[in-house]
Design a protein around this nucleic acid. Structure first.
Lengths: 153, 153
DNA sequence: TATGAAATAATATAGTT
DNA sequence: AACTATATTATTTCATA
């Protein structure tokens, strides 16, 4: 699938505000409302736009502490991997999890209320998943930048 | 600021689809449209909801490669920090950057088109920022989980 | 102080050219 | 793709608990 300049401008406008009226998006894309409405629908149908989400302020929701937890499994058998990934899926405080290259197997991003809460998530949940050998925590001191995943040149 | 059960249900509904009609959000929260509309406005005004963004598919936009880059500065003087953070702000392929605890100073999340592009971002951009001593890249092999930042228990 | 119902205003979408 | 008409949807008003 190929995006043209109109599509890019539409997406750029929606990234500023996904609830921006179509007429206003149209203005930015130098187009009228009708084709913008149709293009947005097309982008949704083709899966370029998967959906829309509110951008929430973690602090205002009582989530003051953020960490990246690097995890090693001790035996890379399918059963361990499946159990690990299920535990990750079930925990709402795990907001991202990637299988990665390097010394560690997984990089897990966690949002917690405070140190005690993070400790509970790490020690009582992550470290107790069968097959998990080792965890290393990297605490976030300050968030310098955070945009929605996916840049648009 | 204190969120009640209604607010939580409203946020949960919007997290599924931030463009869901108010009437439908109201149904989920067991409320009518009027208070839901007002509560959403209140959550926006108070900064709990910062805005709305489309959820995009990186692959459909030609971004096939993702990495976390750990960075060390060689002298933690204000000038270096300022220059580093400005370079980060300017680069659209850096989608997140945190100052962190541990061996490294910063954790930077990068989205690139391919290995060559990642290499260019890392070697020609990040490593050339004055004050940057060392970078270690962790390549994402597979994304097991990715939700919008901020869980809501 | 917050809600629900109804009226109004804003906005999105479908039909037509 | 644009213009116009129609249909959705959001928001304001007002009465009420």
């Amino acid at each position: 699938m190929q995006l043209d300049e109109f599509d890019r401008k539409i997406i750029a406008a929606l990234r500023e505000d996904a609830r921006m009226p179509v007429a206003q998006v149209a203005e930015r894309a130098a187009l009228s409302a009708t084709p913008v409405s149709r293009r947005i629908k097309r982008l949704e149908d083709e899966g370029v736009i998967r959906g829309y989400a509110p951008v929430l302020d973690p602090r205002k929701l009582g989530l003051e502490l953020e960490a990246y937890v690097l995890i090693n499994l001790n035996a890379h058998i399918d059963e361990n991997i499946a159990r690990f990934e299920q535990a990750i899926a079930e925990n709402p405080h795990v907001i991202a999890c990637h299988a990665v290259t390097g010394d560690m197997d997984y990089l897990v991003r966690v949002m917690a209320r405070n140190v005690e809460h993070l400790s509970q998530i790490t020690l009582r949940t992550l470290l107790r998943i069968p097959g998990v050998r080792d965890v290393k925590s990297i605490i976030v001191l300050e968030t310098v930048k955070e945009t929605q995943p996916v840049p648009l040149d």
